[in-house]
Structures are given as structure tokens and as C-alpha cells.
Amino acid sequence: YKIYPYDSLIVTNSISVKLPKDVDRTRLERHLSPEEFQEVFGMSIEEFDRLALWKRNDLKKKALLF
């Protein structure tokens, strides 16, 4: 996945969300650098992957990456 800054990946309720063209809309968190991922989620990507799907989705919603 290509890395993008968190600010360019957050999704708000506005209709005209302009995400970069090559971003996987269903896995926005994968486009964060490991350092920024840790900062946003408070855990590593590996720890995040071990969580239940509902928990990952809940965290993504709170981080505006859903």
C-alpha cells in the first residue's frame, strides 16, 4: 500500500470526500506509515490485525478512517 499522511485519509460525513485515487477505500488504515499508525491507533499494525473485526471497525470509525 502507498503511504499517505493521516490528514489526507480521514473521512468526514461530507459527500465530497477527495481521497487519493489509488487508496483502498476499505482499508484506509493500511496507507498510514507505521509511526503514524501507532500514533492514531495506539498500537502496531500487527496488534491491530489480531483484534476482532468489530473492534477494528470501531477503532477505524473513531479515527475517521471508516
Rank of each mutant, 00 (worst) to 15 (best):
Y1V: 15
Y1E: 08
Y1L: 14
K2M: 10
K2W: 06
K2G: 08
K2E: 12
I3E: 08
I3V: 13
I3Y: 09
Y4T: 01
Y4W: 05
Y4S: 01
Y4M: 04
Y4V: 04
P5M: 04
P5H: 04
P5F: 03
P5L: 04
Y6I: 03
Y6N: 00
Y6E: 01
Y6M: 03
D7R: 14
D7G: 11
S8Q: 15
S8L: 15
S8R: 13
S8D: 12
L9V: 02
L9Y: 00
I10G: 02
I10Q: 07
I10T: 07
V11M: 11
T12I: 13
T12W: 15
N13Q: 10
N13P: 10
N13R: 10
S14N: 14
S14D: 15
S14E: 15
I15M: 15
I15G: 15
I15Y: 06
I15T: 15
I15L: 13
S16A: 12
S16I: 10
V17T: 14
K18M: 11
K18T: 14
K18Q: 14
L19F: 10
L19Y: 15
L19G: 06
L19E: 05
P20L: 07
P20M: 06
P20E: 05
P20D: 06
P20N: 05
P20T: 04
P20S: 05
K21C: 13
D22I: 04
D22M: 04
D22S: 06
D22Q: 05
V23D: 01
V23I: 09
V23T: 05
V23E: 02
V23S: 03
D24F: 05
D24Q: 05
D24P: 02
D24K: 05
R25S: 10
R25W: 08
R25Y: 09
R25M: 12
R25K: 12
T26C: 15
T26W: 09
T26L: 12
T26R: 10
T26N: 14
R27F: 07
R27E: 05
R27H: 15
L28Q: 02
E29V: 01
E29Q: 02
E29L: 02
R30L: 07
R30I: 04
R30D: 02
H31G: 01
H31P: 01
H31I: 01
H31N: 03
H31K: 02
H31L: 03
H31V: 01
S33F: 03
S33N: 07
P34A: 13
P34N: 10
P34R: 12
P34M: 12
E35Y: 10
E35A: 11
E36W: 03
E36G: 05
E36F: 03
F37S: 00
F37A: 02
Q38Y: 14
Q38I: 10
E39P: 03
E39V: 13
E39H: 13
V40K: 06
V40D: 00
V40W: 04
V40H: 11
F41H: 00
F41I: 04
G42W: 06
G42N: 13
G42A: 11
G42E: 10
M43N: 01
M43K: 03
M43Q: 05
S44M: 10
S44L: 11
S44E: 10
S44C: 13
I45F: 09
I45P: 07
I45V: 09
E46M: 12
E46G: 11
E46S: 12
E46L: 12
E46H: 11
E46Q: 12
E47H: 09
E47D: 11
E47Y: 08
F48M: 02
F48N: 00
F48K: 00
D49K: 06
D49M: 08
D49V: 05
R50W: 06
L51D: 02
L51P: 00
A52S: 14
A52W: 07
L53G: 09
L53H: 10
L53F: 10
L53W: 11
W54C: 12
W54N: 12
K55R: 12
K55D: 10
R56C: 02
R56K: 10
N57R: 08
N57L: 11
D58M: 13
D58F: 12
D58N: 11
L59Y: 05
L59Q: 03
L59H: 04
L59W: 03
K60E: 01
K60L: 04
K60C: 02
K60R: 06
K62E: 09
K62M: 10
K62H: 09
K62Y: 06
K62S: 09
A63M: 07
A63P: 00
A63R: 06
A63D: 01
L64E: 06
L64S: 10
L64F: 11
L64P: 01
L64A: 08
L64K: 14
L65P: 01
L65S: 01
L65G: 02
L65Q: 01
F66H: 09
F66D: 08
F66W: 14
